[in-house]
C-alpha cells in the first residue's frame, strides 16, 4: 500500500509542474501589472517595487527562481499586502476553510449516504421517491442560490440563525456548512442509491438472504461495502468541488477563508498570491484524490492484494 501511495505521489509531480507552469504563464501574460491599479504611484517607485519583486528580470529567470522557492516551500511575498508572505496568508485562511470543508463534507456524506441507502432499499416506492426528489432539488439548487435563500428564510425572516461571520456567534457555522454541503449530499445520495441498487441485484445478496441473515446484516454488512465504492471514488472530485464552492460560500457569508482570499487575489492581480494558492489547491486536490483512490483500493480485497503483492 505504501509503495502504491508513493508511486501515485511520484506521478503527481509532473501534474504539479504543469499546474505551476500554466498558472505562472497565465498570470504573467495578463495585461496590467499588480501595481497598475494604484495610479498615484510615481514611475521610480514603480520601478523600485518591480525590482523588489524581481519583476524586471526576464520571464524565464523569474520562473526558475519561483520554482526554486516553491520547492523550498516558500510561496514568496504578497504583492497586495506588503510585508506579509503568501505562506502567512494561506495559513491564516486555511484553518477556517478546512473547518468549513470538513463540516460540509460531513453534511454531504452522512445525509447523502443515508438518503441513498434508504431509497435503494425500496426502489420505486415513496421511500425512494421522497429522498430522490429531494436530491434532485439539491442538484438543481446551486450553492449561490441556496445560500441567499437560506439567509433570506432562516436569517432574515425567521431570525433563527446568524447570516454572516465565522466563529463569532454560536450557530454561525450551520448555514455555511449546509449551503456548501447540500449539493454534494444530493450527488452522493444519487451515487449511493445507484451503487446499492447495483449491488442489491447481485447473486451474493440472494445468497446472504437465503442463509437467513437479517435485512440489517444484508444491507449493512454485505451490500454497503460494494455499494459505496462509487461514493468513495467520488470523494476526491467532491473535495475539489468543495474548494471551488468555498469561494461562493465564503463570499456570501463573509467568512475570512482561503476561498475569499483567492477571489480577492484574482481581482487584485496579486500574482504571488494567485500562484501560491493555485499551487496549494492543486496539491491538496491531488492528495485527496490519492486518499480516495487508496480508500477505494482498500475496500476491494482483490485490488488490495494486487497492490500488496508487488
Amino acid at each position: 500500500m505504501l509503495r502504491f501511495a508513493l508511486g501515485r505521489l511520484l506521478q503527481a509531480i509532473p501534474v504539479l509542474l504543469v499546474v505551476i507552469t500554466m498558472t505562472f504563464l497565465l498570470v504573467h501574460s495578463a495585461p496590467g501589472g499588480p501595481f497598475s491599479a494604484d495610479k498615484a504611484v510615481p514611475a521610480e517607485v514603480l520601478e523600485a517595487l518591480e525590482a523588489q519583486y524581481n519583476l524586471d528580470q526576464p520571464l524565464w529567470q523569474q520562473y526558475i527562481s519561483y520554482l526554486g522557492d516553491v520547492v523550498r516551500g516558500d510561496m514568496g511575498p504578497s504583492f497586495k499586502y506588503p510585508g506579509r508572505s503568501v505562506n502567512e496568508l494561506i495559513l491564516s485562511g486555511l484553518g477556517t476553510t478546512a473547518e468549513l470543508g470538513l463540516y460540509a463534507m460531513m453534511v454531504a456524506v452522512f445525509i447523502g449516504v443515508i438518503a441513498g441507502v434508504t431509497a435503494s432499499m425500496r426502489p420505486n416506492t415513496m421511500q425512494d421517491y421522497v429522498p430522490m426528489t429531494a436530491a434532485m432539488i439539491g442538484i438543481c439548487m446551486p450553492s449561490f442560490l441556496l445560500g441567499p435563500l437560506l439567509v433570506l428564510v432562516f436569517g432574515i425572516h425567521l431570525e433563527w440563525l446568524p447570516v454572516s461571520g465565522w466563529n463569532q456567534i454560536p450557530g454561525d457555522k450551520i448555514l455555511p456548512a449546509i449551503t456548501l454541503g447540500t449539493g454534494y449530499a444530493a450527488y452522493i445520495a444519487r451515487l449511493s442509491r445507484g451503487g446499492m441498487l447495483e449491488v442489491l441485484s447481485q447473486d451474493y445478496i440472494r445468497t446472504a438472504r437465503a442463509k437467513g441473515l437479517s435485512e440489517f446484516l444484508i444491507i449493512g454488512k454485505h451490500a454497503l461495502r460494494g455499494g459505496l465504492i462509487p461514493v468513495v471514488a467520488f470523494l476526491g472530485p467532491a473535495f475539489a468541488g468543495l474548494l471551488g464552492g468555498s469561494f461562493v460560500v465564503e463570499t456570501i457569508y463573509q467568512i475570512p477563508g482561503l476561498g475569499r482570499f483567492y477571489v480577492q487575489a484574482a481581482f487584485n492581480r496579486d500574482y504571488t498570491m494567485i500562484l501560491g494558492t493555485t499551487v496549494f489547491f492543486a496539491t491538496l486536490i491531488i492528495v485527496f484524490n490519492l486518499l480516495s483512490d487508496m480508500l477505494a483500493v482498500w475496500l476491494n480485497p482483490k485490488l488490495r492484494q494486487q497492490v500488496r503483492g508487488v
Binding site: 498558472t23 497565465l26 471551488g244 492543486a282 484524490n289
Partner: peptide, 16 residues
C-alpha cells in the same frame, strides 16, 4: 483530471 480546473477558469477569466 487532476488539474484544479475551476481555479484555472477563474484565472483565465481574470487574466483575459
Amino acid at each position: 483530471y487532476a488539474l484544479p480546473f475551476m481555479i484555472f477558469i477563474i484565472l483565465l477569466m481574470v487574466v483575459f
